[in-house]
Design a protein around this nucleic acid. Structure first.
Lengths: 172, 172
DNA sequence: CGGGCCATGTAATTTGTTACATGATTCC
DNA sequence: GGAATCATGTAACAAATTACATGGCCCG
């Protein structure tokens, strides 16, 4: 049910097309909850049937602009007050448990790829942080909180990877 | 394909029953990749059909003990050398983007629940860390690396939550 | 006028969750 | 004897990915 609420939450900022929402999944919210167009479009159709969003216009190329309804806004708020699902899935993290099945040199290379990836991610996040000025509205502040969460956990993973590489190279 | 390889990876440590594997998903590897018995048992049956594992015995209450085959070990190693899927899904993280839809006081309470949760998780991880002595074998070292990753990212999330609460309470 | 991106959809498949279902052993 | 936990499975449903499919607009 997260995709559904993510769409409603994004529409709470103002009317948008399905494609516009898709772009938000590639940028901001996609870091926490990725989604593809093949999942977004059918979900929007369902939300519309259920009266949580409404089509308020049509742009070029058949673009449909959706707007949140009152019931839609109530529904996001209700969701925000429920207990989050804390499930985490991290494939790279899973692989660490089995690293011992590879020779030391390959373990170190695995960890270096991890380090590279996280450094790249940190650059991306920093670029976003530079774009966004100091928050003035509640919405901007919330986005700043989300961004800061990404910056800090990515930083922690970078420091971990550096430590892990030393740990693996130490005894060879 | 991650569940499949997680099962193979766990069986690389030695023979185990489906139930024994399930317990590993509730503890250690489950922090990175959770799985329930309803997914594990059918997957074990498939791995057996494909000759990646073999049933080597039967314990009390119809418990089936499985062992990794040579082909099974090759398959985990092959998988470990492929690029990990970096997809992350974090429902609590997603909600941060939409926090502005709640009044400040509720935002702060949301963040405090997040802080409590992460503190609880840190305690669990620390308890595991105390149980496990300094690593001597490659397997123990890999587990230590995985645990350290959990400890560091959880710590980062705790510090983030404390900062975020101050941030939200500051301007009220 | 061609390439890239805007824009929307559906279908097939895989993966994961929830619910249903059963029975044995062990410990108190 | 009863509760907790061991132990295995299937079925129904929901969510997510991959693949199939189509066409419009804009810029150079």
């Amino acid at each position: 049910m997260s995709l559904r609420h993510a769409l409603l939450g994004l529409l709470a900022q103002g009317p948008r097309s399905g494609y516009g929402l898709l772009k938000h999944f590639e940028g901001s919210v996609g870091y926490a909850w990725p989604a593809l167009h093949s999942q977004i479009y059918p979900e929007l159709a369902r939300l519309r049937e259920q009266g949580l969003i409404e089509q308020v216009g049509e742009g070029p190329r058949g673009a449909k602009t959706y707007e949140l309804t009152g019931r839609g806004l109530d529904e996001v708020r209700r969701w925000l007050r429920t207990e989050p699902d804390r499930t985490v899935r991290n494939e790279a993290g899973l692989r660490i448990f089995f690293l011992w099945l590879l020779p030391d040199e390959e373990q170190a290379r695995f960890l270096e790829r991890e380090l590279d990836y996280q450094r790249g991610l940190l650059s991306e996040l920093r670029a976003i942080a530079e774009d966004e000025a100091t928050p003035h509205t509640p919405k901007e502040r919330a986005y700043r909180l989300a961004l800061e969460a990404g910056l800090r956990t990515t930083h922690a993973r970078i420091e971990w990877a550096k430590w892990a590489i030393r740990e693996v190279r130490r005894r060879r």
